[in-house]
Design a protein around this nucleic acid. Structure first.
Lengths: 204, 204
DNA sequence: GCATAGTTTGACCATTTGGTCAGGATCACG
DNA sequence: CGTGATCCTGACCAAATGGTCAAACTATGC
């Protein structure tokens, strides 16, 4: 969860409880669809007590989003320009899918924010996200130029990794409904499928 | 837009105006994040007048969703079991991407509904959607068995088509932000990328 | 042009919502 | 133990929200 600078032990505990509860609620209903009462109830606190720790509903949302962007970019940051191109990209896919599995709420929070036009994240997207994407797209383009992986559009390659991996978090209920109850956990199958897909895609 | 049984001309016109406005609002803010005032203003009507045409906020949402599911499945319905396997699937991808381009609001409405756990669509998903998906997955599996396209998991193949194409509607603002202002319309490039991707993927 | 069916609205209502505040409870620490 | 800082709460508020209703307005067909 989001670590937060806090003086006392109680503050630390409650701030985390609030952010965790808010993540539950915001990720499901979006900012405008969520209420302080919902968050307070989920956190096991009273509404005025919530507002003792955060000045406003918006402040909670902003805090969540700013913590999120860093976490979100970590897997891509770890893409090593000096590593084996094919293995680097496949490892990135694996890290992203693992993220969808372990942090589906964060994925949905992000999806909600983008769906609503990214009113509170546009700066981070046009800033950090774009910057890192440009950097790594250049690395990937280099690998393509060197003939180490098949040529394609590096940006759309990254988009396809984002879309395919996040789909299993954001559209989880659809995936499970289609696969049926006896389908079991979709993630192992998804990992194998994506491994095969990108493996084939990258082959020259 | 959604066609709707209506006696008078005025009724027809206003119901359509309302549904169109509601699509704008719901697709951006989700059900709970949208207000009747917003919808009324967008439709150019007063709030009581809205409620003359629809009994409640929920009724508008339900109407939109039930019209949507049919439209949504059309491209997959058109997948012809007797056609050329590779060309059929590529054509399906093209139809889905075209849908994201022409009906991004509908795509976002759907995404919002799924993100919130599909409270009003679960029946349709476990019913029509699952049924059609099962049917077409069987067709695709047949093609794989016959060695006409590369073997993989037919369900995850369909998921990947949904995810990749809908991404360009649902995450539009992210895509455009990353590609930058001089990037132009992302859709032509996306079409070419997806064509290449699936072409390669399907090759035995 | 008139009666009727169909359409629109301002005023209103109960509930929910984000947020405040004064005071009480509890903790940390000398 | 006591005292100051921290934590918590019930009561409250103004605004927004989904929805109602009687009355006024307008289109339509005769």
């Amino acid at each position: 969860m989001a670590e937060t600078h806090a003086r006392t032990r109680i503050q630390k505990k409650n701030r985390i409880a609030i952010l965790d509860a808010a993540l539950d609620v915001f990720s499901q209903f979006g900012f405008r669809g969520s209420t302080l009462d919902q968050i307070a109830k989920a956190a096991g606190l009273s509404k005025p007590n919530l507002l003792y720790y955060f000045p406003s509903k918006e402040a909670i949302h902003v805090e969540l989003l700013s913590c999120l962007m860093d976490t979100w970019l970590d897997p891509l940051r770890d893409l090593d320009p000096t590593g084996d191109p094919r293995e680097e990209i496949l490892a990135y896919v694996r890290r992203k899918l693992e993220m969808s599995r372990v942090m589906p709420r964060e994925s949905r929070l992000f999806a909600n924010e983008i769906l609503q036009g990214a009113p509170r994240m546009m700066d981070a997207i046009k800033g950090d996200l774009k910057e890192l994407t440009d950097e790594k797209a250049t690395v990937i383009a280099g690998w393509m130029d060197a003939g180490e992986i098949a040529r394609s559009n590096p940006y759309h390659l990254l988009f396809s990794i984002w879309s395919l991996t996040q789909h299993y978090a954001d559209f989880d209920v659809q995936v499970r409904a289609v696969l049926g109850d006896e389908g079991g956990d979709p993630f192992p199958t998804a990992e194998h499928y994506l491994e095969t897909l990108f493996s084939k895609l990258l082959t020259v």
